[in-house]
C-alpha cells in the first residue's frame, strides 16, 4: 500500500491525485504501526495512540493542502504540478 502511494505520488501530475497518494502512504504507515504493535507488544498501546495522532495530523494536513490547491487553482486555473512555474527562478 505504501508502494502504491509512492508510485502514485511520483507519477501523477494532478495535485489532487498526488494528495490522495500521499494519504495512501500515511494510512499504510498507520496500519503498520497498529499491526506491529499488536503482534510484537500486545501489552502496550503506543502504536495505537501514535496512529490516532497521525490520523488527526493527516486530517489537518489534508485540509491545508486542499486549501493551497484551491488557491493555486484560482490563480492559475490549473492543478497540474508541472504547469505551476510562476515562482520558479
Amino acid at each position: 500500500m505504501f508502494g502504491c502511494g509512492l508510485y502514485g505520488f511520483i507519477t501523477r501530475k494532478n495535485m489532487i491525485a498526488m494528495l490522495i497518494s500521499l494519504e495512501l502512504m500515511l494510512n499504510s504507515v498507520d496500519i503498520n504501526f497498529v499491526v506491529f504493535n499488536r503482534y510484537l507488544f500486545p501489552a502496550q498501546y503506543e502504536g495505537m495512540f501514535f496512529s490516532l495522532f497521525a490520523i488527526a495530523i493527516a486530517a489537518a494536513e489534508t485540509a491545508v493542502a486542499i486549501a493551497i490547491i484551491i488557491n493555486v487553482y484560482r490563480l492559475a486555473k490549473n492543478v497540474d504540478i508541472n504547469q505551476i512555474t510562476k515562482m520558479k527562478f
Binding site: L6, F9, I10, T11
Partner: peptide
C-alpha cells in the same frame, strides 16, 4: 529544478 516529483525520486 522546482519539480516536486523529482525531489521525491531523489529522496527515495
Amino acid at each position: 529544478s522546482g519539480s516536486v516529483q523529482g525531489y521525491v525520486s531523489y529522496y527515495i
